[in-house]
Amino acid sequence: MVGKSYINIIICLLIIIFNVGGVYASEDKLAEKSYEVFFKNKNKSDFLALQSLQKSAQFGYEKAEFDLGVAYGLGEYGLVQDYQKSREWLEKSAEKNNAKAQLALGIYYLNGDGVQKNTEKSVFWLLKSANQGNASAQYNLGSMYLSGEGGNIDYNQAKKWLMASAKQNYSSAQYNLGLMYLKGLGVKKDDAEAFSWILKAANEGHLVAIYNVGTYYMKGIGVEKNFELAKKWYLKGIERNDNNSAYNLGVMFFYGLGENVNYSEAAKWFQKASELGHLDATYNLGLMYLKGVGVKEDSQKAFKLISKAAQQGNSDAQFLFGMMYYRGEGIVKDKKEAIFWLEKSAEQGNVQAIEILKELKE
């Protein structure tokens, strides 16, 4: 373990190095050198890194003030997480025009992390950072104007800042800009322009954009239908464990989109989507086991899957689960349980459940 005496030796050596010809080294030079020591040791020694970082920050070095603020916010280098101290150091750095510190403060006030949520202060700091070209600040500022967070919606400002961020290849900004064109928010609705921006986001690795590109190719939104490309993008999403991509790929095989119907492949991808938490996939897979489509008929597996989807709020599963209890399919008949699940489904507006309940209660 590195002792305090060792740290003092390091600091003294730094002073000697810059005390050339009897000229005492400036605090700026010491701050920079202390920061260099921090940077070299931040992945090696928490103790040495922290001592050097604190020394540099105390000399007023804005990069060190920012890093110390982050360290307090995350509880790094052996520090106890302390949002108040984090904010104090970030403010010191932000006031010296550090764009990253300004961004961090903007996010703190936006989310209420360790401070009272204050959208006015959030916009103040995000705007300062955005004006320096920080892509993340531009995205967050544009998204606030898009949603009306803390004030009125302003699509012109939203487009301005999202465009600035998108041009720096910030994928979330590219995606949101695509949504503006897709929905006609402050701009003329343009599916092709929407697809163009969402494709850019997908190419930058934005997971929701990857799924949407697959869907746009499957449905022909803003681009000509292309089932092969749809599958390509869905497979990219599946590599990232996106359950929607797995579900839609299952749908393509189930209905034979782009090739012949293949129920066993559909079941394979519904299974994958179900494992990743997709309720419609779980329900559909249950139906396939119930009817022996693409899989060997198995009423017990069907019951288990449909039960899972029903318990997690899938209206169709709740309806079918109720009917299974009513008819005694894969389970002992139970009118009380049947009514319970049919009512759950009816509460979500399932018309069939509403009609069956009328008959059961007559």
Rank of each mutant, 00 (worst) to 15 (best):
K4I: 15
L14T: 07
L14W: 00
V23E: 14
L30S: 00
F38D: 05
F39Y: 15
F39M: 15
N43D: 11
K55V: 08
Q58E: 15
E62W: 07
K63T: 09
Y72T: 10
Y77M: 04
G78I: 04
Q84I: 15
K92P: 02
S93G: 09
K96P: 09
L105S: 06
Y108Q: 15
D113G: 11
S122R: 01
F124Y: 13
Q132H: 09
G133L: 06
A135H: 08
S136H: 05
Q138R: 06
L141W: 04
G142C: 07
I153Y: 00
K160E: 03
W161L: 05
G186S: 04
N203I: 14
A209C: 08
I210S: 00
V213I: 12
Y216H: 07
Y216C: 10
G222E: 05
K232M: 07
K232R: 08
L235M: 12
N243Q: 12
F254Q: 10
L257D: 00
N260T: 13
A267C: 07
K268Q: 14
K268V: 07
Y283M: 14
L287W: 05
L287H: 01
M288G: 10
K291P: 02
V295H: 00
D316N: 15
A317S: 03
G322N: 03
G330F: 10
I331D: 01
K336V: 13
I339N: 07
W341E: 00
E347M: 11
G349R: 11
A353V: 02
L357N: 05
K358M: 14
